[in-house]
Nucleic acid binder design. Sequence first.
DNA 1: ATCCGTGTTCGGCATAGTCGAACGTTATTC
DNA 2: GAATAACGTTCGACTATGCCGAACACGGAT
Lengths: 259, 259
Amino acid sequence: MPVIQSVDRALRILTVLQGSRRLSLGEIAGRLGLAPSTVHGIIRTLLAHGMVAQERDSQRYRLGPATLRLGNVYLDTLELRSRVATWADELARRTGCAVRTGVLLLGDVVVVHHEPRPDGTRQMPEVGIVIPAHACALGKALLAFDPAGLVDVTGRGMTGETITDPVALDAQLDQVRRTGIATEAEEAVLGECGIAAPLADAGGEAAGAIGLVVPASEWPPAASAVDALRAAARAVSRELGAQAWPPPAPDRLRPPASA
Amino acid sequence: MPVIQSVDRALRILTVLQGSRRLSLGEIAGRLGLAPSTVHGIIRTLLAHGMVAQERDSQRYRLGPATLRLGNVYLDTLELRSRVATWADELARRTGCAVRTGVLLLGDVVVVHHEPRPDGTRQMPEVGIVIPAHACALGKALLAFDPAGLVDVTGRGMTGETITDPVALDAQLDQVRRTGIATEAEEAVLGECGIAAPLADAGGEAAGAIGLVVPASEWPPAASAVDALRAAARAVSRELGAQAWPPPAPDRLRPPASA
DNA sequence: ATCCGTGTTCGGCATAGTCGAACGTTATTC
DNA sequence: GAATAACGTTCGACTATGCCGAACACGGAT
């Protein structure tokens, strides 16, 4: 599957900038193995559209405001998000936990909805944050039903608890496929556990996942919380047009009669 | 200033998609005046990075989750945002109004921070929304001190009150430069008025603007609210390293002795 | 004042992108 | 139900386009 070289490079520049906040032209060129003048031409174009911005003092480059505009429109167009909003609210009240909804982006999970814990404390909005898929419950729920295999298997862990063994992860995913429920205990951040369930769409695929954020001190969660989560996932999936929940296993795991 | 053609086209595709949510390949090609196969090649690249997504049923294209990730990182890197956060909170409490902070993106204002009205009602988060610069107080505060002239002057109005006359707008901007305060009365959305002030950075430019959203029924706002707004803008500007507030008029309006 | 370290511009070569036409598939019509 | 139309997708050839190396300007260092 051929890609347009210059566009690919432009997107790589954005990705690099997204990882390291503010970089000089030379640094970007170095990380991508390109000539500075090549990068400059592309950045000039990104600059004209507001996708990157240049600090007037240090001359370094950052992401620009156009990225925010795009991200906001993405949220608006996401049917998943509007469908999940009402259910997440109720789920948070019932369980006393924060509720996250996420979608898969390559090997990561991007949070598209966040219902804060209903205890009135000020909490940072988490919409837009990215978590490695293999290290969170949302990610496991998504990977288990993803038609593409787990992208690059597991690179490296985030905490001591992170699962870095491909076969151990695969065993977990198999269980997720059977039960429809994925869990995670301090594998992404210490002190934080999670439990999640996939959200099926009309095509029978996992369009997203919804999950509870559970403090390690309250782990494992009550059975009633798990039931509420499962019910919410079922309800949202039905609204999305899915016929079954949990969704069927992806085709790659069903090689029965074709060879 | 030459731009890379294919990258420019890729960004145009994103912009079109951002305006019209979901489009077929042919529609995109039509709006850009390009061959469908050309657009397809670019979209395939955007697809590989998650910048666009394709619906599996209708085959149409939407923006993808990678846009959200970029937008979120942009917010994190924005010094303006973190500096404004504490002040906006106090300003909202003192005035009883919602507080918005925005930056300029070509001819529009992008909201980068939003402190809801402190009356406890559920309000939509407005971070990421885009408003034509000439139709809102934030935009006027920014345009008045923007080194580039008002991009394309005023195209067309949003409500009957929107200022569409370039000279009328320029007169307002001149007053903004003198007082440091910009206002808007139902020019963007009916029933909503605004008052805003620029935020100066170390370079003496308007890096952003902060403003109050005032219901039309409470317009004009009390003098104490205007004072509080001005004080907040001064404080944030000082934290950003600005020496003066309001910032000096842009160079394009100072052609004294050079020719 | 001089030297590095930047970001930026310019021009030639060849690669890499564009376009038109053909293909396969899916929805629509009679 | 068959034929048609519309759409996304693939392929190949032409040449316009973007890539790179070297030269230029600017700033802050020593």
